[in-house]
Design a protein around this nucleic acid. Sequence first.
DNA 1: GACGTTATGTCAGTCATGTTGACTTATTTG
DNA 2: CAAATAAGTCAACATGACTGACATAACGTC
Lengths: 163, 163
Amino acid sequence: MAAPAGVASPDDLVACVELLFFAYRDFTGGPDAILETYGFGRAHHRVLHFVYRNPGLRVADLLDILRITKQSLARVLKQLIDKGFIIQRTGDDDRRERRLFVSTKGGRLAEKLITLQTRHMASALANVGPEASEFARRFLFAMIAASDRAHVEALVKQAAPRT
Amino acid sequence: MAAPAGVASPDDLVACVELLFFAYRDFTGGPDAILETYGFGRAHHRVLHFVYRNPGLRVADLLDILRITKQSLARVLKQLIDKGFIIQRTGDDDRRERRLFVSTKGGRLAEKLITLQTRHMASALANVGPEASEFARRFLFAMIAASDRAHVEALVKQAAPRT
DNA sequence: GACGTTATGTCAGTCATGTTGACTTATTTG
DNA sequence: CAAATAAGTCAACATGACTGACATAACGTC
């Protein structure tokens, strides 16, 4: 054998890289199809998702999460607001801020998409084994740039558990 | 406790979904930056990568792998050929076919990008533990749509081990 | 050898999503 | 009051997808 057991050979690593490409494509395919029926795209999905999971988010927070420009965000956000999926409310403390919330309709769509994706994820994890969820979180977290990890960790943990 | 040990709670699943988004973004960031210096984008990367790993690939095979239209592929492929990163050779048996190969220059770039990505992957896997590679492959494979798995498995395994 | 099929290439137009750069408005803060 | 901040907007552009239509060359079959 070229590589000792438990250690990744170069070909194993390339396989992981390629598998990630196909996995990500198939993972986003389901939501994409639903979004299309609403006239939305993946960009709308991201905005809706993070607002749903983090109610009261400010525009600046969203820019920080998505790492796109204000102008790119403005386009999709405006559409989501115009179509009544997201609601803006002037901040209580600072009235320059626009706090973002999903509407009932927006919440329904966000839930629909998240259900689709968590089912996909759950099914994949079930295929792998009992400790898969813990493992996947550690793996995916380690794939994130070190400089982003603290930020992402806070975002993912804090996310709205208002059952 | 809401969920028994080893079983993913809904919030764990959502965390995985979100982590995958950030992980994928950071994973593609490195190659993107290099590609930019060549005037290439992510689309070029995919073409170059799969041709590098599967020398002699036909255009039709590439379309099947990437699942984009002929016209979309044509644009990036033409640029890669024009700039001398990919070489076309008429098929020996069937002279309608154009077999695709990377040039020396193309191979160098492909190798550079793959090294970047496998290092990223290896570092993430090392963070997780000794069995991480095996686990990641199983997880990512399970994330791929069932209808695609056989196809992807063949592609990933067959890939050029001509060291 | 003519004809239908296949592999590839190409022209033209559109859409989604990202980018830069410049500027406005409302509000808070020093 | 002046400066800084949060957000919104206008204009132009790049990338990478898409559809639809059509062209060319080579293969295979009757």
